[in-house]
Structures are given as C-alpha cells and as structure tokens.
Design a binder for these strands. Structure first.
Lengths: 194, 194
DNA sequence: GTGTCAAAACCGACCAGCCGGTATGTCGCA
DNA sequence: TGCGACATACCGGCTGGTCGGTTTTGACAC
C-alpha cells in the first residue's frame, strides 16, 4: 500500500507545494492536481491532510535516524565519528532540502499527537548525538564549560538554518558547505585554555 | 492611530496566539476575543490579517535594527562590539521570544510584497553584521578560510533556533545563554593555525 | 482462453462549516 | 451636524472531507 505510484506522486507533490507555498496555503485540491490524481485516490491512501504531512516527517526522521545509526556503528575516534555525522546530516539535509524546509516550518500544523511523536523521535536523535559529544568530553577533547544540550543545539541550529540561506544553484557545493559548517562546529567545541 | 489601546491589545493577543497555535490556525475571531475587542474595532486599525502579521515583523525589525545601530555607534574594538551585538540580539530575542517565534515561523504566510520587504530589511541587518566580521578579518583577528556569508549565517542560526529549545522557565538564565552562545560563535571565528 | 465474482482502487460531485472581510448602523463628542 | 471610533449582523468563497457509484485487478474454476 505504501509504494503505490499514487501515494508516491501525491507525497512528492505535497513536499513540493508545502515547501514553497506552505502547508496552510496549499489545498488538497492543488496537491492532487499537481500529482495528476484525484481527491478520491488520495484519500484512499491518506487518512487526512494531516496524515499526508506526517508522512513527510516520518520519512525524514527514519532516514536521518538510520544514517546516524549506521555511522555510529562504524569504528573510529570520537572526532572522526562526530565529524562524519555532522557532514552526513548536512549533506542529506541539502539533498532533501524541500522536505527539510517543511520539517522545520510546519511542525505546529501537525495534530498535537503527531507533534508529540515528532518531538520524541527528534529527542532520540538529539540524545545519541549529545552522547557522542559527552564521550569526547570524557576523553578531554571537548570543552565542558557549556551545557551539553547547548552544544548540541548549537550544531542543530546550523542544520535547521540551512534552508533559509542555502541554494543548490549558488556558488557553494554541498560537500564544501558541509565540511565548512562542521569545521566551525568542531572549532567551537575545542576546550578553552585555562 | 498606532498607539490606541485597541491596536496594542490586538497585537499583543495576536503575537500570543500566532506563536502558540500558528498564524493559519488562528482566526481573526479568536484574536479579537482574546484581546477583548470586536472585529469591527480591529479592522478599524488593521487593513487585514496580513497587515496585523506584518505589524509584528515591522516592530521586531525596527527594534533590532535600532539596537544594532546603537551598539555600532559605540566605541570599541571589533571583538568588543561584535560580542556586544551578539549578546544583545540573543537577549532581546529571548525577551521577545513570542515575536521571534512568529518571525521565524510565519514569513511565508505574508503577502509576496511584504515578504520582500522583510527580506530587504533582514539583509540590511545581515550586511552590517557581516561588515563587522569583515573588519575583524582585515585586522587578522578572524578566520578568512570560510565565506563571510556563512560565518554570519552560522551566528544567525543560533538566534533563529533559540525559540526551538530555550525556555524562560528552564535552568539557564537569559544572560548566561547569551554569553555562552556568543562565546561559541567567537570561538569558531578564531583563525586556524596554518 | 474465458467467464465469474469479490475486493481493491479510484472517481468526482457534493456538503457543512468556517473564515476573512464588509456594510450598515450607533454613539459620543467637538 | 459631522466625523471618528467602534458594534453587529451578514456574506461569498473556499476547504477538508465524504460517499455512492464505477472501473480495474487478480484469483480461481472450467
């Protein structure tokens, strides 16, 4: 049921429209027209407009979590692993910029229940990420004068903000941006001389 | 006309509701009820719901710009001035958290024309901020291996993200958060050893 | 191959409700 | 008596969602 061409087309069209016009400014009618299907077909695969929106969140959260776990499973020093994670999440956010835009812009349009689920799953990601920083702190590699949660937030803010300024058509390549932002973050993690 | 108690109350109620429920999920009826006025009174002071939303943007942009210019006019080294600006914008964003939440969440709900004006005024702020970093680079204080725009974005991302995690009821005080985030930013600006 | 038939997929006209906005009226005051 | 500041009833349009009906699909018998 999940991989019907209808469901796929509708979701793609929805991501596209939500990211440009916004969720509230996009009617179900516009979505199905853009997807080349009918309303009946859409409501056969999605319970509601909210359900469709949540589908976007679900995909993105699953993907990023899988990527995170895959990298965490690899061998390497804290520095290497953390760097790899930062670069990966930035690159994949750029690869899925439209989804990311919707993700950060439309949480409050989800039903309360769904918002809670998104929060929980984001926190899982956050905690694994913060845990890695904590390991680095234990090894004396990262500063401890600033709360762990703030260090993590300091990085997520960059990912969050990407869709506000990055353009795929711009001068900066995806991987360069990823390396530079990661570099800035890691630089700010260095312990301060006492 | 601007400082009627009706206009003030409506705006305050709107900020409150927009920041919690979102612009699209808040009806004009709810706003006027929360403000204790009638729809007629509101439409006497605001042309449209869009106009009301823009009022929030206008206030915030004017305030931040004025604060920026005031600090820029003061004497001091680049480090001191930049640090003061960072701390100030973070603190005032916390002081006006509700407005900031609306600001970052609802731009795409503004009319195209108004969106353009907001963009222009944000860019003015951005350019002055980036200009200061550039001065620091010229003095050899800040790294030059990363595009200026990205350095600026790296800071704005933290301000942007504040409303996602900061709670006034939480353990961290406003000024401490401001100092710590500024410290992280300035740390990442340091030139890298070659 | 072909007829049968049930289930799944899909269609699209329709609806109730809400929402932003307005038209018209009232009231106090200069 | 004119005018700005509100109040209130009202409207047209649009939106998410539904529902009865039709077509397509696929398993099975013959």
């Amino acid at each position: 049921m999940k991989d019907s061409h209808v469901a796929v087309d509708v979701k793609r069209a929805a991501v596209d429209l939500f990211s440009t016009r916004g969720y509230a400014n996009t009617s179900v009618q516009q979505i199905v027209e853009a997807a080349g299907v009918t309303k009946g077909a859409m409501y056969h695969y999605f319970e509601s407009k909210d359900d469709l929106l949540f589908g976007i969140y679900d995909s993105l959260l699953s993907m990023q979590k899988a990527r995170l776990d895959e990298i965490l499973a690899r061998e390497g020093s804290v520095d290497e692993v953390l760097g790899a994670i930062c670069i990966d999440v930035i690159e994949s956010s750029i690869d899925h910029m439209a989804e990311a835009t919707v993700f950060f812009r439309s949480v409050h349009m989800l039903s309360a229940e769904r918002q809670r689920e998104v929060t929980v799953r984001r926190r899982e990601y956050h905690d694994e990420f913060a845990g890695l920083i904590e390991r680095g702190q234990a090894e004396g590699r990262y500063r401890t004068d600033i709360p762990l949660a703030m260090l993590a937030a300091h990085f997520f803010s960059d990912v969050h903000y990407l869709s506000q300024w990055y353009s795929p058509d711009g001068p900066e390549s995806k991987s360069l941006v990823a390396r530079q932002l990661t570099e800035l973050f890691l630089a700010s993690l260095s312990p301060v001389a006492t």
